[in-house]
Amino acid sequence: MDVFMKGLSKAKEGVVAAAEKTKQGVAEAAGKTKEGVLYVGSKTKEGVVHGVATVAEKTKEQVTNVGGAVVTGVTAVAQKTVEGAGSIAAATGFVKKDQLGKNEEGAPQEGILEDMPVDPDNEAYEMPSEEGYQDYEPEA
């Protein structure tokens, strides 16, 4: 019985440690998101679009440190934060509304985080759909 109880105690310690790591990862992701939003706020009209992409990228980098179902929630929060940063930029006159959601080359930025393969159960990952990809044929 002692062996059984000791095993359960060790398992509990492992769960607590994993929860603490997840909590730490979420806190880091939130900190990076805040950094990115402050970065966007300090940019001029020309830099705002690039700044919004930076927020998304920093958040995406930190999301990889967070495991399990938390990833889905962090990704949703990050996307809403990026959308909010863009709205703030438009409201303050840093950028025109028609410039939001495009990178410096004018290509749409939507789907940055949505296409990231995420499995809350950590069982399997699927690649994003290939609808947006084109076949590449090298020139002879």
Rank of each mutant, 00 (worst) to 15 (best):
V52M: 01
E61L: 03
G84F: 07
L8M: 02
G132H: 09
M5W: 02
Y136I: 01
K45N: 02
D135Q: 10
G93V: 07
L100C: 09
I112W: 15
A19Q: 02
T75V: 14
A107F: 14
N103T: 13
E110G: 04
A27R: 13
K96Q: 11
T75F: 11
V16F: 15
L100P: 01
E46S: 06
Q109K: 08
V70R: 01
V66S: 01
E104G: 14
M1T: 00
K12I: 09
G84D: 07
V118I: 09
E130W: 12
E130D: 04
T75N: 13
K10Y: 07
G86H: 15
V49H: 00
Q24E: 07
A107Q: 13
T22H: 02
H50S: 10
V118S: 07
V49Y: 07
G86T: 06
S42Q: 07
M5N: 04
M127A: 11
A19S: 01
K102R: 01
K32P: 01
V66C: 06
P117K: 05
D2Q: 12
T44R: 02
T33D: 00
G106V: 12
V77D: 02
K97S: 08
T81Q: 03
V15F: 03
K80A: 07
A30H: 00
E131D: 09
V48E: 00
M116A: 15
P117S: 09
M1A: 03
E114S: 14
V26L: 09
A124V: 13
G93D: 06
A78T: 05
V74W: 09
A89E: 03
K96F: 14
I112Q: 15
E61C: 10
V40W: 00
V15R: 00
E57G: 10
L8Q: 00
Y125V: 11
K60I: 10
A91V: 04
N103M: 11
A11M: 15
D115H: 04
T75L: 15
E137Q: 09
L8C: 01
D121V: 14
M1Y: 00
E83R: 10
D2V: 03
N65Q: 05
A27M: 11
P108Y: 06
A69L: 01
S9F: 14
N122H: 08
G67K: 15
A89G: 08
V16N: 08
E20M: 06
G132A: 09
D115Q: 11
E28N: 10
V63S: 02
E104R: 11
D135S: 11
P138L: 15
T33S: 06
E130K: 06
A11T: 07
G14W: 05
K12A: 06
A76F: 02
G25H: 15
G73V: 10
G7V: 14
Y133S: 04
G36S: 14
G86Y: 07
G41T: 14
V49M: 15
V16E: 03
L100Q: 05
I112P: 05
E137V: 12
E139P: 14
V66M: 13
V63L: 13
V37A: 12
V77Q: 02
G84P: 03
Q134P: 08
P108G: 09
V48F: 08
